[in-house]
């Protein structure tokens, strides 16, 4: 018991206790992703400077998740809001939190252009392969053959394209000051390491940081616990390889 307690300490200090238990469905991946962020905020001692922007979609439910300044935005528009805040006050540590629909569909132009401009912001994107809040429609990340509300016979890539490889795209267009990684809520320590790197990259003033986390949605996948983990671990990783895709070059000056 003692060991388990150590590995699962009390909720992060930066979490807002008044909004717990949180509003996500049982088995949802958001809680794990946000726990990683919460612990990173604690470890870096940046709660006072952090601004958490959340998109529309299930990520919206995190609007009072943290004991840090938070702002709801519109679907797809979280990146420009936090980029605008960062440009106006560079002291802030800004995080844009969104799902795959917000980041890769309706807000894709903002992701692409913020990345190209090397905005000093951190974007965290939960990829659960569906539009979850609206009832499980096809998302840009839906796997070929995957059944969703709008692909009842399974996604046909001929008709609707291949799943969006977000981090690969962002890595391809960013400068060597950017940090880009894909983790999974199934591997918490590694995901947390990526989130920390992403925030540290912003703290160091190097540039754009982007972490996608593969995340489960048992409600819309209609899966039980075992099937959920299996889909996340075995199916999704076939299309979405895990790991750091771009690690910023650190100048000699910065190393000293």
């Amino acid at each position: 018991m003692q060991i388990i307690h150590d590995r699962n300490p009390a909720m992060p200090k930066s979490w807002n206790r008044d909004s717990k238990p949180h509003r996500f469905c049982p088995g949802c991946g958001h809680g794990i992703f946000l726990k990683a962020l919460g612990e990173v905020i604690d470890e870096l001692g940046i709660a006072e400077r952090t601004v958490f922007g959340c998109d529309i979609g299930c990520s919206l439910l995190a609007w009072d998740f943290f004991n840090v300044d938070s702002v709801q935005t519109h679907h797809g528009r979280t990146i420009p809001v936090v980029a605008g805040a960062k440009r106006a006050n560079p002291e802030l540590i800004v995080v844009a939190y969104m799902g795959d629909g917000g980041g890769y569909a309706i807000g894709a132009q903002h992701l692409v252009n913020a990345a190209l401009r090397n905005e000093q912001i951190t974007v965290l994107l939960a990829n659960n392969s569906v539009y979850a809040m609206t009832g499980g429609q096809m998302a840009p990340t839906t796997l070929p053959g995957q059944k969703t509300g709008t692909t009842p016979y399974g996604r046909d890539p001929e008709a609707t394209g291949q799943p969006t490889l977000g981090p690969e795209m962002v890595a391809a267009i960013t400068s060597d000051r950017a940090y880009v990684a894909r983790g999974t809520v199934a591997n918490f320590p590694r995901l947390k390491r990526y989130v920390k790197q992403a925030i540290e990259n912003q703290l160091a003033g190097r540039g754009f940081s982007f972490v996608e986390a593969l995340s489960g949605c048992p409600t819309n996948w209609r899966t039980n616990a075992k099937q959920t983990w299996s889909y996340l671990d075995d199916e999704m990783t076939k299309y979405f390889p895990l790991g750091e895709i771009k690690v910023p070059k650190v100048s000699e000056e910065e190393q000293q």
Partner: peptide, 16 residues
């Protein structure tokens, strides 16, 4: 990159 972004970034600036 577009007016949506310009408008929302303005909101971010004001909120800051």
């Amino acid at each position: 990159e577009d007016e949506l972004s310009a408008g929302f970034a303005t909101l971010g600036g004001v909120m800051a």
